[in-house]
């Protein structure tokens, strides 16, 4: 039996499922484009062959390595917590299908 855009039979078209799928696609594409654009920006800024750009790249790497867990630990903990909640919710979907 053929399925529609929302993953359901065309007869059982569900606006919510359609919206959810559309959200994933749009936000996913937006994230990819934004990340690629930002990376390309950094590349354009730092790709110079001159010595000072070499120093800038090394300094940037050192700056990133110096990020302490203590400074961002609380944010990381919250992200881990919300990811766990999300995973649980996704897993819980099978019981209400």
């Amino acid at each position: 039996m053929p399925t529609g855009l929302a993953g359901r039979h065309p007869v059982d078209f569900d606006l919510f499922y359609f919206w959810r799928r559309l959200l994933v696609v749009v936000v996913g594409i937006y994230c990819c484009i934004t990340t690629a654009d930002r990376m390309a920006g950094y590349w354009r800024l730092l790709h110079g062959e001159e010595r000072h750009w070499g120093y800038a790249r090394k300094y940037l790497v050192i700056q990133l390595l110096r990020v302490g867990l203590r400074d961002v630990g609380w944010e990381l903990t919250q992200i881990a917590f919300w990811l766990a909640v999300l995973a649980t919710l996704i897993w819980a979907h099978r019981f209400v299908s």
Binding site: R20, W82, V96
Partner: peptide, 9 residues
């Protein structure tokens, strides 16, 4: 995303 998942459930 969690909010959307809750709404979904």
């Amino acid at each position: 995303t969690v909010v959307v998942a809750v709404i979904s459930i």
